[in-house]
Design a protein around this nucleic acid. Sequence first.
DNA 1: ATGGTGCCTGAAACCGGTTTCTGTTAACCG
DNA 2: CGGTTAACAGAAACCGGTTTCAGGCACCAT
Lengths: 343, 343
Amino acid sequence: MGNSRVTVREIARLAGVSVATVSRVSNGTGQVSAELRQRVLDAIELHGYQPDHLGRALAARRHGALGLVFPGLSGPYFSELIQGFESEAVPARASVHILCTHLREDSDAQVLEMARRVDGIAVMGGTISEAALLRLADLVPVVVLAGQGRDAVPSVGVDNATAMGRLTSHLLTEHGLRDLAFVGTPEGSPDVSQRWAGFLAAHRELGLTPPGEPVRVSMQQPDGVLAAEQLLRDRRPPDAIVCANDEIALGALVGALGRGLRVPQDLVITGFDDAPMAALVSPPLTTVRQPVRELAAEAARLILRAASTPDAPAPDSIVLPTELVVRRSCGCPTGTPTGGTGK
Amino acid sequence: MGNSRVTVREIARLAGVSVATVSRVSNGTGQVSAELRQRVLDAIELHGYQPDHLGRALAARRHGALGLVFPGLSGPYFSELIQGFESEAVPARASVHILCTHLREDSDAQVLEMARRVDGIAVMGGTISEAALLRLADLVPVVVLAGQGRDAVPSVGVDNATAMGRLTSHLLTEHGLRDLAFVGTPEGSPDVSQRWAGFLAAHRELGLTPPGEPVRVSMQQPDGVLAAEQLLRDRRPPDAIVCANDEIALGALVGALGRGLRVPQDLVITGFDDAPMAALVSPPLTTVRQPVRELAAEAARLILRAASTPDAPAPDSIVLPTELVVRRSCGCPTGTPTGGTGK
DNA sequence: ATGGTGCCTGAAACCGGTTTCTGTTAACCG
DNA sequence: CGGTTAACAGAAACCGGTTTCAGGCACCAT
């Protein structure tokens, strides 16, 4: 220990100056004569003084911290998300508080509690109730990450419906597939809900009848294995498995190959996210690329800005572009450069 | 807004009592008459007063927050880790601050900075310098997660060397394999370093010559694909690929299968961690189970305890048991119950 | 000599809580 | 009825910083 218990008043006494002067020196604000400055710097150096964060935060009435709330952690998606958020927060000298809500039932209360410890919060879509979100926005700047904003709560996301519609159309028109299964739980998150909607819309636009129900599973690789086994056990398996994300697709691929099927000859599989593995499996996965890291970074920037200008008008929501990435798992010969950019 | 700017003094004024009484009521400490208590509760309710965390933390001289420092995020390992940590911290009303150091070069400074905002920190082994670790331990309670503790800094981990030694011996003796490759970067983390050491030791115990160098890659699935391709391109590929974790192994499996090899007939692959996917791929992965979530939870408990009893002696390091999980990727016929428990 | 202007400096107030310490009142006891 | 004690309430100090405000001083122009 040693440097832990040193306060401004202590340094002030040792340097023979007032606390105001110590504060000015340690912050570089205001005018201090060269002599006093040196005396203070010496005392600070000698005793290893570091201003206490709490005192400073209390006086400044800002925490210097950002919150990130998500349902759970799984796969490269959340890794990217957290890292994107962090990469923006830390240079702004803001620490990052996290909260996984899926572990507990009283997540609304937890999030509200978090609001009193940070300057702003990014909440993943669908993790807390609508009511809690509004109360939250009342307390601190909030942005919804990958979900629908509401009133004064801006959101950052991609146009999932259009992107998934484009992918689905590709399967229906280019490959003439007619029996597609959708794997993912629309009720689980706004992302999946929109992807499911885009999947349905693409069918209807072509006058086709989409499947009535998706295969509801979670978003991790093991769930994809499970889903594939369930679908392939059926007497009449689908032509294609359209997965809500790459993790599911990777799992489904493992499941399908494990049953001796050939992809894409016997079964087409597609994903969403363009995770690093998508390009490396065989066959490489046809998917939709979305800029996850950039999404989170954008959210962090929005919050930081809102926190520093308290009375500014609520910023607009942001929609980042996606890109259809056609590889071999859909049946295309090879990396056909059909890559269309979503809005 | 509305409830954001209400302070104790405000409530005290409105309820016609002193701030001390408001504080007593809102904390349930001390004695307050039924009448005053009700007046205060009404005022609190009416104005939606919530005590400010900073004021409270400053007075209590504790932050009510824990820090978690890791190199980067990747795969189920870190998900488990974070969730295990969080599951222990949140019920203790402590928020969780995270810091990914691999994104920046000045991580030592960042960690030291974090120390002034939390009551204790868990640092993944190998993420910061030895010097920084010691300085850190000077400021707040610290525990090293999956790494070597030092002096008064306790650690929580598993016996990687023994576990990997057991796995390696299994391949060498049960399956008679002689040409094993190790994939992973020992310099990258204490975990891998110990696993490499165990791999080498198992060879030497049997009087065999281990490979001189590991295949140095990172710890993610794509790296496993890469490593497999590199090894299999060689004129004389190994009999077995012993991977530093399951992610690498899963990638290697994909890479091997993609090249038309049969596992385990043509090539044996093993992992470490027992990630959820390990049991689901074909063939299922032989690996070592370690209680990652429990590891992190234990670390959180250690820190919380140390933070609440400042002058207690430094707790002992903790080593949790591992379990060899034999599945089919090593060549065993099926789920042979050879599962031996490591110390 | 006088008044004005800037530059430094420190006392004190402030951020929003908790806690000690003192004093009042009422209850209880012999 | 006097005296001790317990319960309760509030004033003020405190946690560790920042910032306002007023005063002192040197310097310059009238």
